[in-house]
Computed example of a mutant assay.
Amino acid sequence: MENPKKKKKTSQNPEAKFQFELNSCSKAKDLRGAISLYDDAVLNNTRLNQHHFNALLYLCSNSVADDLLKTTALDYGFRAFRHMSSLGVVPNEASVTAVARLAAAKGDADYAFELVKGMGKYNNATPRLRTYDPALFCFCEMLDADKAYEVEEHMNGVGVSLEEAELAALLKVSARSGRADKVYEYLHNLRSCVRCVSESTAVVVEEWFCGAKASEVGEVEFDVGQVKEGVLRNGGGWHGQGWIGKGDWAVNRTSVGADGHCCCCGEQLVCVDIDDSETEKFAGSVAGLALEREVKANFSEFQAWLEKHDAYEAIVDGANVGLYKQNFADGGFGISQCSLIVL
């Protein structure tokens, strides 16, 4: 008697079969095979869903880098998206990202950006960094700085943060467009967000400081005291006063010694503290934790006391200082330790 467990599975329905074969083409990066499957599915009136279209769109968007496949990928990619819309299949973030990449490959950055801006009409479709990249990079490559800034502004509006690649692209288009104010802004964004940049980003920075425009910008007359105050307020990392000084920049690549000295100019590197806004945010976080864990009335009274006595630059935690290293048999609260710290 035949074991029912060994029975072969019944044949798949057309939709599932199409999905399986399409996934195989996607894994193999076989665009032509996927197109053939798609044409057959359309001819046979196979019911297509979002996953089907996304798989095809993804394959098309990844094939535009191949010169032999680019034209076909663009043709079928846009055709599939129009077909998707005509069937009432709602795109998601992956759908929009794929079509935006197709638009950028075609050089149509405006359409790529319009796709992202129009995502609000789709349920549960929230743009991500990768969704904006096609439009942003395309505008930057076209040296359309104003449109690139518009994309950045839209990203900021929905809470999408720039990373090194995006900042480097914006820095490059700003430098080549002679937008010194934006160059200054993106340099400090790199400083605060990236810290250690890649080789390609370093080249962009070097190109700016070696260029003629960099030597032309800057204030000859400036308030030294105000600059020092700005450095202090911003934690020692930068002054925030814009370009000061004028003339050619000395551009060299160097390294830092184990003792913190620059091997090129010999200057001693110093620690950079957090700036005013970061300090305020940190203080707010600490206060929030304290209110959760301590008696609220007591901490509120302490905050009120601090506001009245804000002339103090430091407060000594006597309990921790006095009991420091006193956890032994004859140990106790060391008033002398507190006195030493205060002095």
Rank of each mutant, 00 (worst) to 15 (best):
V227C: 05
L31V: 10
G318M: 12
I274A: 12
W249Y: 14
V96E: 08
S61N: 01
K296Y: 08
N156K: 07
G284N: 15
W208R: 00
A112C: 05
D75S: 13
V220C: 03
T71C: 04
E221M: 07
G240W: 15
L343E: 11
S26R: 14
R82H: 08
L43G: 03
S86P: 00
C196M: 04
R79G: 02
L323H: 15
G118Q: 03
D75L: 08
Q326S: 14
A258M: 10
G240T: 08
D133S: 13
V321E: 11
E221T: 07
A297M: 06
G334V: 12
S255A: 04
G225I: 10
S192P: 01
S198K: 12
Q12M: 11
S26Y: 09
F18D: 00
P91C: 04
V151Y: 01
A283T: 12
V316P: 04
S277N: 14
A311N: 03
S95I: 04
V173L: 04
L56A: 00
G245L: 04
A297T: 13
V205K: 05
C140D: 01
R253T: 10
M1L: 05
K17V: 03
L306C: 12
L289S: 11
F113S: 01
H239D: 11
L162A: 07
Y111C: 07
I335T: 15
C25V: 15
C60R: 00
V251W: 04
R233Q: 06
N44A: 06
C271G: 04
S198M: 13
T10D: 06
E301Y: 07
A169T: 09
V231H: 08
H52M: 08
Y38L: 07
A145P: 00
F18A: 08
D317W: 11
A104M: 06
M155C: 03
D248V: 07
G266R: 09
G247R: 05
Q268V: 11
Y186I: 03
N62V: 02
T72P: 00
R253E: 04
V42Q: 13
S95T: 13
A180Q: 14
K9Y: 11
L115Q: 08
Y324V: 06
V203W: 02
A148W: 01
D248L: 12
D248P: 01
K70W: 09
S192G: 07
V160Q: 07
S300K: 14
V227I: 14
S177W: 02
A169I: 11
G288S: 15
C196E: 14
A304L: 03
A168F: 08
S61Y: 00
A28V: 09
T131C: 09
